[in-house]
Design a protein around this nucleic acid. Structure first.
Lengths: 251, 251
DNA sequence: AAATTTATTGAACAATTGTATAATTAATTA
DNA sequence: TAATTAATTATACAATTGTTCAATAAATTT
C-alpha cells in the first residue's frame, strides 16, 4: 500500500488489523459500484496480491478461498477475477511478482562473482551465500510481504503444484548457479552436486518458512535469533556440506 | 492389501489400475448394502488409509476430497466417516500409522548407539545416519505406501497444519536425538545445533518427496540414482555441515 | 432364536466455492 | 460532448464438499 486510504470517498471502516483466523468472512467496507474516483487500479491489484499471498501461505492453494482473498483485500469477489482471471493465474501472479525480484538479485550477484573470478573459480562459500542470502535476508528483514512469500515458497516446496511452479520461475537461475558449483567442485559427480544444491535449497526454505519448530525443539524460549546469525550458520553448514562431497565417487 | 479380493461375493469390476489424474470420479463396484460376508473390516480400514495417504500426498489436505478417497478405496463415501470420523482425524490416522513405525526404528537405533557408546559420545555421522536412514530407505526401497507417505511428509513440512502434526508425532524423537547432537558438539551453540538439525530434516524430506526437480535440473536424463547412493551423499553432506559448526560462537 | 451390534450401501443436506452475468460509475477517447 | 472503455459492486449458478440420516445384512451376544 503505497498511498494509503486516498480516494476512498465513501464511509470507511477502519478495521484494518489482521485477523488471526483467516477464514473469517470479514465484513467489507460499503462502497458504491462503478469505477472509483481518482484511484489507480494498480493499488487494488497490489492489495489483492498481498491478500492472496497471505491466504495462500496460510491456507494453501486449495484452502484459500477467493472470497476470503477479496474480503482481506477489501474488494468485491469479482474484482479478483476481473484483475487476475481464474484462481490458478492469480496464484501464478503472486509467485512471479517476487520471483522476478529474487532471480534478479541472485543473477546480479552471480554475474559479479563471475567477473571478479575472471578465469578462476568462484569459492563455494560465495556461491552458497549469493544464492541463499537474498532469500534469507528478504524473508527475515524485508517487509511483511516477503516474510509471507517465504512461508508460501516453503509450503510449496515439495508439492506437485509447487514443484511445477518453482520449475517455471526458479530453475533457470538454479541451473546458472549449478554450472558454477560443478566448476568449483570438478571431482564431484553431477548428481551429487545437484543433491547438495537441493539440500541447500530445502534448508533455506525450511529456515525461512519460519514454522516455529526450532523454537519448539529448543524449548528454552529464548528470544528469536537474528537473521544474520541464522544466515551465517546456514552458510557455514551448507558450504561444509558441499566441500565434503569431494573425493568420494568420481565425476 | 494383505489378502486381496476375497469375500467380494458380488460381481466385481477389475479396473484397479491407478489413475494418473486422481480427481477422476472412478466408478465403484456394485455391492449390496449390509455387512459383507466373512471379510474383516481391518482390510477395509487399510484400504481407506492407503487411498487417503495417496490422495493427501497428491492433492493436499484440502485438495483431497473424501469422495475420491472412498472411490479409490472402492468403498462408499460414508464408510470413510464410519471408520475414521471427520476428515481431520482421518488425516491424523494416516500420519500416525507410519510415524509410530518410523519413531520406533529411530529410537531403537539411538538406544543401540547409546549402549555402544557407553560413557563416550556418539559420532555425528552415526547420529545423522541413524536419524535419516530409516526414512530414506523406507521411502526409497519400502513398499509404495512408504513412498507415498514420504511425499506426504515432505509436502507437510512447512505448512502450519503439517508443523502442528509433525510436532505431535515426531518432536519427542527429535529431541532425544538433539540431546546427543548437542553432547557430541559441546562447543556449538544450542540454536546452531537446532538449525543444523532442521537443515538435515529439510534436506531429507526434500530428497524423499521425490519431486523430480533434481532430474529436471540435471537435464541429462540419466537413470534414477540408487537410494543407497543418495543416502551416502546426504549423510556425508549433513555430517560435514554439523562438524563445521564447531569453533564459531561459543555455547 | 431373538436381540443387538457391526459394517456397509444409498441418498440427502446445508455450506462453500470458482466462475459468470448484470448494473453502475468514472476515466478516456473520438 | 458523446461514445467507449475500465474498474467496481451486486447477484446468481452450478458444482463440489464434509457430514448426517436411513436402510440393510452379516456377525455376535444373550
Amino acid at each position: 500500500m503505497t498511498q494509503d486510504m486516498d480516494g476512498l470517498e465513501n464511509e470507511i471502516n477502519l478495521e484494518t488489523a489482521f485477523d488471526a483466523t483467516p477464514p473469517t468472512p470479514r465484513k467489507r467496507t460499503a462502497r458504491k459500484p462503478g469505477r472509483p474516483k481518482g484511484k489507480s487500479s494498480d493499488e487494488t491489484r497490489e492489495r489483492i496480491l498481498d491478500a492472496a499471498e497471505r491466504l495462500f501461505a496460510d491456507e494453501g492453494y486449495d484452502g484459500a478461498a477467493l472470497r476470503d482473498v477479496a474480503a482481506a483485500a477489501d474488494v468485491q469477489l469479482h474484482a479478483v477475477g476481473y484483475h487476475f482471471g481464474p484462481k490458478d493465474t492469480l496464484f501464478e501472479t503472486v509467485i512471479s511478482r517476487r520471483s522476478v525480484v529474487m532471480t534478479e538479485l541472485r543473477m546480479k550477484a552471480l554475474n559479479s562473482a563471475q567477473v571478479a573470478a575472471g578465469d578462476g573459480l568462484i569459492p563455494i562459500e560465495k556461491l552458497v551465500r549469493d544464492y541463499i542470502s537474498p532469500f534469507v535476508l528478504s524473508a527475515g528483514e524485508g517487509d511483511s510481504g516477503w516474510r509471507t512469500y517465504a512461508a508460501l515458497m516453503g509450503r510449496l516446496a515439495n508439492s506437485p503444484l509447487g514443484t511445477e511452479i518453482i520449475a517455471r520461475h526458479y530453475d533457470a537461475c538454479a541451473r546458472a548457479y549449478l554450472v558454477e558449483f560443478q566448476r568449483a567442485l570438478p571431482s564431484v559427480a553431477k548428481a551429487d552436486v545437484i543433491e547438495g544444491f537441493s539440500a541447500m535449497v530445502a534448508a533455506m526454505l525450511g529456515l525461512c518458512a519460519d514454522t516455529g519448530r526450532p523454537a519448539r525443539l529448543g524449548q528454552t524460549d529464548q528470544k528469536r535469533r537474528s537473521t544474520a546469525e541464522s544466515l551465517e550458520t546456514l552458510v557455514r553448514f551448507q558450504t561444509a556440506g558441499f566441500n565434503a562431497l569431494t573425493g568420494s565417487s568420481g565425476p
